[in-house]
Design a binder for these strands. Structure first.
Lengths: 199, 199
DNA sequence: GCGATGCTATAGCAGCGCTATGTATTCTGG
DNA sequence: CCAGAATACATAGCGCTGCTATAGCATCGC
């Protein structure tokens, strides 16, 4: 399928153009228009494919009785997904790539993000129910803070500003700071966060 | 100059192309090649212009005796700079935009980031010297955490995933969590962070 | 004054996304 | 089972992109 092909070319740092993506497949450029309504539609499909892969990786994170570990591990899964396919990640979250209308991209990203984001919110809610976080903590807000911080570190890695190992170390500190701020016990939080990276 | 023109067109959401940027200026397309070595060079120049403006806005943040407030305010200045010119911010930090070689963009961003980043590191160092942070805190690492979190929230706003007001609220919580984690007194930290937004 | 050097304008290249058009193929109704 | 309708296809070409080769012009050193 053209979507997988586009994603593969993206990973190989090859330019993905209307003509290059259909070259060798035997199909013509018109197929892109009948199936995807043009290149913006193909980018949209690639974006959804990226979110599907992210969702898959998110689902692979097991649920344990340590919800704080789970919450950490979910964030780690997002980051690992991004670093394993940087260009795809950029297509997913950067409205400029694919030169599509920014608002359309935003809608797609926001909707697709919600699904993968639910897992983090659930983990945060479970942690609160287990007494790890204060009762007045909004799980969605806490998950957003954690996800946004990870997203920022990831984007800086993708932009070449910092290295992946630096981001890894700082993410651990940030996670601990956020979760302790939400009410978790510092020592216990540190252990849970560390466990979140231990596969 | 073509750089300002390109930045202005970027802000007006107009497509910035070789021909469109020179249209009306009287100069020919060749000027872009003699002065900027092609479109990638022009994007590089626009990026530097963006960092210059950011540096200007960073410099406008006054130094007070409350270094934590200053550190917060510097992060706020970065965010405000981004939201006031979203497309320019994307060009600055997104390697894909301008379709330049990713590594070259990374080098430019990393180097230019260092200069604007120094102000945050200095503020963090002053806060540590004032006893607000623990002695074992690395100012550069703490500043990176704060900046990365703000960057992540900003990118999500630019991507349409969250609103600016949501980012504003979460940034305050994140800043407090990070600075308290670094050793600051919770109540005092909250006041300083809040003051960071109060212009 | 004059040759040399550097900048500029023009024309044209290959590539891009996209569309109009004619053809083939596949569903659908009787 | 077959005619008619609807859909998907390949081709050719449009206007645009970044870029470059060439020719003309200005300026500077001597």
């Amino acid at each position: 399928m053209l979507i997988e092909r586009a994603a593969a070319m993206l990973g190989r740092h090859e330019p993905v153009s209307l003509r290059s993506v259909v070259a060798g497949t035997g199909v013509s450029t018109m197929a892109v228009y009948t199936h995807f309504d043009g290149m913006p539609g193909l980018w949209r499909a690639v974006r959804q494919e990226g979110f599907a892969r992210l969702e898959e990786q998110i689902a692979a994170v097991g649920i344990t009785d340590d919800a704080v570990r789970d919450l950490t591990a979910l964030g780690v899964a997002c980051t690992e997904n991004a670093l394993s396919a940087p260009d795809l990640y950029r297509v997913m979250f950067d409205a400029a790539t694919g030169s599509e209308d920014a608002t359309a991209t935003a809608t797609t990203s926001a909707a697709a993000t919600d699904e993968t984001f639910d897992a983090l919110v659930d983990a945060a809610a479970r942690a609160r129910a287990a007494g790890r976080f204060r009762a007045d903590i909004d799980p969605a807000r806490l998950a957003l803070r954690w996800r946004a911080a990870g997203h920022g570190l990831t984007m800086l890695v993708l932009g070449g500003v910092i290295t992946a190992s630096t981001a890894r170390a700082e993410a651990e500190t940030v996670a601990t700071a956020l979760f302790v701020d939400a009410g978790d016990d510092p020592d216990r939080c540190r252990r849970s966060v560390a466990a979140g990276w231990a596969d």
